[in-house]
Simulated scan of single mutants.
Amino acid sequence: MLRVRTTKTRRPPVLRRVVHVGVAAGTAVLLLATPGAAQAATGDVAYLAANSLPVVIANLRNLIMGLLAGIATLFLVLAGVYWATAGGDPGQVDKAKGALRNALVGYGLAVLAPVLLQLMQGIVGG
């Protein structure tokens, strides 16, 4: 019996996950990078005010903490779904444990975000 090999190769699961996260992060960056002044009407005068460094760092801290907490909550919910639907399957339980570990890392980073940004503010000198 002849076996026909297909030329299509599947990416490793880790690479697929990295690609998915990269596409999602790139989309978020593109959406957040749209300047507000570009939305102004043509006849209006647009005043762009630069914030001081402590205000920028506080805004950045709030954004990072919100994103990390949201993503960690998503992983926590996924871990619960994986664990509830495992049905005794060790592979599915390991998948749930991995998602739970990722959620805990995300919550830890969200808690450490203010400390890291305060350290950055001290280095920059604000």
Rank of each mutant, 00 (worst) to 15 (best):
R3N: 05
R3G: 05
R3Y: 09
V4E: 15
R5C: 12
R5D: 15
T6E: 14
T7N: 15
T7D: 15
T7V: 06
T7S: 11
R10C: 06
P12T: 05
P12E: 12
P13G: 06
P13I: 02
V14D: 14
L15K: 09
L15H: 08
R16W: 06
R17M: 12
R17E: 15
V19N: 07
H20P: 04
V21C: 11
V21D: 15
G22I: 04
G22P: 03
A25C: 03
G26A: 14
T27E: 15
A28G: 04
A28C: 07
V29I: 15
V29F: 14
T34H: 14
T34N: 13
G36R: 08
G36S: 14
A38S: 13
A38R: 04
Q39G: 13
A40I: 01
A40P: 07
A40T: 07
A41F: 06
A41K: 11
A41P: 04
T42Q: 14
G43N: 11
D44R: 12
V45R: 12
A46H: 11
Y47A: 13
Y47W: 13
Y47I: 12
Y47C: 09
L48V: 13
A49V: 13
N51F: 12
S52W: 10
S52V: 07
L53W: 11
L53C: 13
V55D: 12
A58D: 05
N59H: 09
L60I: 01
L60P: 02
R61T: 03
L63D: 06
I64V: 08
I64K: 02
M65G: 01
G66R: 01
L67H: 00
A69E: 03
G70I: 01
A72S: 09
A72Q: 03
T73A: 12
L74E: 09
F75Q: 00
L78K: 03
L78A: 03
L78M: 11
L78S: 06
A79H: 02
G80F: 08
Y82K: 05
W83S: 08
T85N: 14
A86R: 00
G87E: 11
G87M: 12
G88T: 09
G88Q: 09
P90E: 09
V93T: 10
D94P: 00
K95T: 10
A96F: 03
A96I: 00
A96K: 03
K97I: 05
A99Q: 01
A99I: 00
R101T: 08
A103C: 01
L104A: 07
V105P: 02
V105Y: 13
G106M: 01
Y107Q: 01
G108E: 00
G108Y: 01
G108S: 07
G108D: 04
L109Y: 03
L109Q: 00
A110W: 00
V111G: 04
V111C: 04
L112E: 05
L112I: 04
L112G: 01
A113E: 02
A113Y: 01
V115C: 06
L116I: 09
L116K: 05
Q118L: 09
Q118R: 09
M120C: 10
M120I: 08
G122K: 02
G122Q: 08
G122V: 00
V124T: 07
G126D: 06
